[in-house]
Structure formats: C-alpha cells, structure tokens
Design a protein around this nucleic acid. Structure first.
Lengths: 140, 140
DNA sequence: CTAGACCCTGGAGAAACTCCAAGGTCAAGC
DNA sequence: GCTTGACCTTGGAGTTTCTCCAGGGTCTAG
C-alpha cells in the first residue's frame, strides 16, 4: 500500500505521515525498489492510533512512545511510566468525550435557533445578512 | 471575573484567551478601571464553546464566525452559510466521538497487555526496560 | 509597606502541520 | 513507443496556533 492509500485508510494526510516519520514519531515503513514507502494494514493500525492521539492533543513526543509500544511491543521506557502515560491518555479520552457531548448540545441549540428564525425562504441562498439577536441570545 | 478565573472556568489558559481575542476570534470583554478584562458567565459560555471547537480542530477563522453568532446572535454571514458551518461542526463531533471510542479500545488493549506482562514487581518503579513483544504484537 | 500573585502589552519562540519546488515513477490511452 | 496526469521522493519555507517571556503596573494580606 502506498502512502496515499495509507493516508485515506487512516484519516491522516501524506504530508502529516511523512512529517511524523521525519520526527521519529512513526516507525519507518519498508521501501519498494523505486523508493516508495510500502505500508501494511499493521502500519495503518498505528497510523489510526496516531491520529487519535493527535485528536487528544497528546504531544508528539509522548505519542511516539505509545506508538512504539503498539508497534513492536517494546517499551524503551520503564513499564511503570508507560502504563502511567497510557492511563493519562485514557483519562484525556473520557474528559474529551464529555466535552464533545456538551459542545454538541450547544451547537444544536444554536442551530435550532437559526432554523426557527425564518422558516420560509429556505431554498434561496445568498440572502441578506440576518439578525437573530433575540433567538440566539437566549442560549446563554 | 478576571481572566484567570475565566480561564479556569472554561478550561483554556489566560494566554490562549488573550491570543483568541487578539486574533478577533473572541468578543472583547469590557475593562475595569485598572485595565483588567472583566468576564461574565456569558463570556465563559462562549469560551467553553471556543474550547470545544478547538478540540474539533475547527480553524480559528471559522470558529470566530460561530462564536459571533453564539455571542450576540448576529451572523454577518448569510444564514444559510452559518447553518452549513454548524452542520459541518456537528458532523465533525459525531466522527470525533466514534474516533475517540476506537482509540480508547486500542489503548485499553495495550494497557491490558502491559499489565498482564509482569504481574509481580508492581511496587518497584525504575526497573530495567521491558520487552513485551509477544503480548502487544497480538493487538494488531 | 513589602511580598507574592495577579494583570497588561508586544514580541520572540515553539509545536505541528502544510505547502511548494524540482525531479523521478507509473498506469492508461493512442 | 510516447504522452499525460496522478502519484512518489526530498528538503526547505511558510502558516497556524499557541506558549512563553520581559518589562511594567495592580491588588491583597500580613
């Protein structure tokens, strides 16, 4: 699998993947005769985890350590520290899930306000700027 | 409420809040006689939304438009575009929630592997580096 | 009235991408 | 075989989004 396919499969971009590799965050995939990177489904698995850690705001340096364990099962770090890092990541995930649920509610409320505003002319985009102070300001 | 309190209440840092304000992403709060920014709970509400959008990776420019609607109910943009932007944000949230759940499973699997490794010497940190190839490599 | 913890602004620095130039590779169609 | 367009490579520059000072003012408690 070439880098483009790995990117699509993992939700990252080829540029990001190359950047991660350059930075030592990702394991280097083997190269084909022509020099192209050659990814396996195992690599994609790691790429997806990298993407998840990125979404959590885990610094690349720490992400690299976690990915190393996931990839070849060796932790250069002490096992105790590794477990701590992973527990930390888990806590971040829980907090983030709560966060996002709250944001979803906020956005749904705003959308609801906007939609109730002018139920007409839905089919006409490019209208004049709208003013919906009363409706949306009730959301605070 | 001063900027530090607003920061704690919203989960952002004072630096980030000032940066957002400088960038035109956040509404400018009133100032006290001494020049200090003075935040209300309404502002905190907006700050929290800003944090959520940041977590989603929404670019600041787009976040600014959404926050403007949430703050004073006016969309300088056309309503249709605004709804589109918010729908887009909602879709991002759903995808992100799925993402994080998957990452949680991945991390739990790795943790499980690490914990099963050496059930002894848990109380002794600072041990030699560990090697757990067999256990963790079964996770892929 | 002093010490410590805030606040302000402006600007430098860092982290994590993102894009581009210059050039090689490949698969499809003529 | 040859062209065309989409991919790949590297290295480096540019952008976004913070993050951290420096230098100075303000506030609260003892």
């Amino acid at each position: 699998m070439n880098i483009q396919q790995a990117a699509v499969a993992s939700g990252l971009t080829p540029d990001t993947i190359r950047f991660y590799e350059r930075s030592g965050v990702l394991p280097r995939p083997p190269r084909r005769a022509n020099g192209y990177r050659d990814y396996t489904t195992g690599h994609v698995h790691i790429l997806r985890l990298a993407r998840g850690l990125k979404h959590l705001g885990v610094p690349l340096k720490e992400a690299g350590r976690i990915l190393a364990v996931a990839h070849d099962g060796t932790c250069g770090e002490v096992r105790h520290d590794m477990i701590e890092a992973l527990d930390h990541a888990l806590a971040r995930i829980e907090a983030r899930l709560r966060d996002l649920a709250a944001v979803r509610e906020q956005i749904e409320a705003i959308l609801d306000g906007l939609r109730r505003m002018q139920p007409a002319d839905e089919s006409v985009p490019g209208m004049a700027p709208c003013d919906c102070v009363d409706i949306v300001s009730t959301l605070a």
